[in-house]
Nucleic acid binder design. Structure first.
Length: 584
RNA sequence: GGGGACGUGGCGCAAUUGGUUAGCGCGUCGGCUUGUCACGCCGAAGGUUGCGGGUUCGAGUCCCGUCGUCCUCGCCA
């Protein structure tokens, strides 16, 4: 490169007129008028128009879109009628004196413009072309700002950033670990962190008091639009605190972030809602609170109902029947109602009962079973003529969850959500354990290090109603953070290990080192981890995490750019004393 | 592992009920063009319709299989 830039492509204005400048960048477009040629030069900072006489610059015959060039030239004002008010540099242009071709390009796989006119597969395969597009660049810049604001807020609030290991001990519960085989210790493997959980708790025992880290976490599970194999967390932990202290730190952080990046004020403190309330009102532990259509309890009416599905549901342990009023829903077609039922079924409901309240009386699958008292109960729940009422029946969580999903479905199709709103809400008092039907045992709902909010029952006792000091931060129906007050007493920790079915030997083998941490004066502590990718996605208004990750994996976990994962060669396997079982 | 959608020149799309030589826009290449900024005008090249098999006189279109991408259920402490 002979000519190094003295200005970026977004820099020159009328006050630079007359200056001799050098620009470096990519050719966005060439407009050849024969005796006069215009060329838009682009870099991260903007576009600048270059004017040249093709006869004086033979190199121009080789220059096309996405070539990399240097332009030496003089800034001049454009003729008044030729100014471009759509661009910040539109009042000036560069009169080319010399053009240096820094690199040519193959014909790009797609055009570099703001509109996305190609499939994502191709964009990600050629991310180095795709990211030259302004919207992609803007998402990357947004993320950079987000990282900066998070670091700044946490540092200002007295938190210390500490890095924890990526190669660590694998752990049994929770998501599947990524394993990294050890060469030096054949047959053994490190696990990549699903989160730095135990290290950050250990840092509390270390006396760090306030820790944070923006860190990568890894979970070997199937991907989704909002889930990647590796993702970024803002991880934090603090000592001698109650959950309100954690909330206050996060509220200061999020209000700052929203003020700076969403150009909208968010009021703190955020509303709080217990898990029971979220489930019963919204049918979700991550309620979308930007519209109403709340669920109501129909259990009392369902008991002994002539409609057998309702009556039988009430016989189940934790059995319930819940309803929801869809305003104006009596006008919906059978097909639209069937679609809603399909949603309920896809989330495990046996079906979705419904009744239309029409001028001719109740109509629909369960109309004939509804007595006057039942109809009065629907009216009390807010239903009126012209509405549709839908129901699910079954065990508490599946029945409510299915109806909650139907609620989201109607919210979408009826356009009930104002997408400009940002509703933060803390969900508190989660159940501590969850019954795993496959393994016939209780397992931790969050993780095994969460403190119970009440004393643990004796071993073998019913754990289903036990609540934990466990909380999620929810934004517009998205879980964006999850945390808890932790166990800091080794005896309590040992009890929890026992309750989830770990023998003392297993507990020692997997977590003995951590029990010793607690035995040497660990302080009471708690914390939270925020999903940075999801927050960036919401701020960017993107539909997929991939839009805010520079080099994301596709839905099957393949990196479209590098084609990882790839097959190690024989020598690599040999060094690890490993070999694939099948040919591969 | 299950369900759904999609796959046609480099890119985005079209092609009636199975029927002529698979068409259009963008891009690419060549020519013309001194005020464009999605420049314009003229011309050209570019296709194993993802892959394999089948039905048929005839398949982009129908059937079976397979691969890939996306969405999703399970899964994700």
């Amino acid at each position: 490169m002979r000519h190094q830039r003295t200005k970026t492509c977004g820099e020159c204005r009328l006050n630079h007129v007359g200056e001799l400048v050098v620009l470096n960048g990519w050719v966005q477009a060439v407009r050849d008028h024969g005796g006069l040629l215009f060329l838009d030069l682009r870099d991260r900072y903007g576009f600048t128009q270059v004017v040249a006489d093709p006869a004086q610059h033979s190199v121009l015959s080789e220059v096309g879109p996405e070539c990399v060039i240097a332009v030496v030239g003089k800034v001049r004002a454009r003729p008044a009628e030729a100014r471009n008010t759509n661009r910040s540099t539109g009042d000036i242009e560069i009169e080319a004196i010399e053009i240096e071709l820094l690199n040519t390009t193959k014909v790009p796989p797609f055009e570099v413009d703001d509109e996305c006119r190609t499939r994502e597969e191709l964009r990600l395969e050629h991310r180095y072309v795709d990211m030259r597009r302004r919207p992609v660049l803007a998402a990357m810049e947004l993320r950079s700002r987000l990282n900066y604001l998070m670091r700044q807020s946490m540092t200002e609030q007295g938190f210390m950033e500490v890095e924890t290991p990526i190669l660590m001990k694998t752990s049994p519960e929770g998501a599947r670990d990524f394993l990294v085989p050890s060469r030096v210790h054949p047959g053994k493997a490190y696990g990549l962190p699903q989160s730095p959980q135990l290290f950050k708790q250990t840092l509390m025992a270390c006396g760090i008091d306030k820790y944070f880290q923006i860190c990568k976490c890894f979970r070997d599970e199937d991907l989704r639009a909002d889930r990647q194999l590796e993702f970024t967390q803002l991880d934090m932990e603090m000592s001698f605190v109650r959950q309100e202290d954690v909330f206050a730190v996060m509220e200061r952080l999020m209000t700052t972030v929203w003020r700076e990046l969403a150009r909208g004020e968010v009021a703190a403190p955020f509303p709080r809602m217990t898990w029971d309330e979220a489930m019963t009102r919204f049918g979700s532990d991550k309620p979308e609170t930007r519209f109403g259509m709340e669920l109501f309890d129909f259990a009392d009416r369902a008991r002994g109902s002539g409609f057998r599905v309702f009556a039988q549901a009430m016989e189940l342990p934790q059995g319930t029947v819940r309803g929801m009023v869809v305003k104006g829903g009596a006008a919906l077609s059978r097909k639209q109602i069937d679609e809603a039922e399909a949603v309920a079924k896809s989330y495990g409901a046996g079906g979705m009962a419904w009744v239309k309240l029409t001028a001719e009386g109740p109509q629909g699958s369960i109309a004939k079973f509804l007595a006057a008292d039942d109809l009065a109960a629907l009216t009390a729940a807010g239903a009126a003529q012209g509405d549709l009422v839908v129901f699910t029946a079954g065990r508490f969580e599946p029945a409510l969850n299915a109806l909650g999903q139907v609620r989201l479905h109607f919210g979408r199709v009826q356009n009930l959500v104002d997408s400009k709103l940002a509703h933060f809400v803390w969900i508190t008092d989660f159940p501590m354990f969850e019954w795993n039907e496959d393994e016939k045992r209780f397992e931790a709902k969050h993780h095994m290090f969460t403190a119970p909010s009440e004393p643990l029952p004796p071993l073998g006792g019913d754990l289903s109603h036990l609540k934990a000091s466990l909380y999620d931060l929810v934004l517009n129906g998205n879980e964006i953070g999850s945390g808890s007050i932790r166990i800091h007493q080794p005896e309590v920790q040992a009890q929890v290990f026992a309750h989830v079915g770990l023998t003392p030997e297993q507990a020692q083998d997997k977590f003995g080192w951590f029990l010793r941490v607690l035995e040497y004066g660990a302080p009471p502590h708690g914390g939270i981890a925020l999903g940075v990718d999801r927050i960036a996605m919401i701020l960017a208004g993107a539909a997929s995490l991939r839009e805010v990750i520079a080099f994301p994996k596709n839905a099957s976990g393949i990196c479209p750019l590098t084609q990882s994962p790839s097959a190690p060669d024989t020598k690599q396997w040999d060094e690890l004393q490993l070999r694939p079982v099948s040919g591969g």
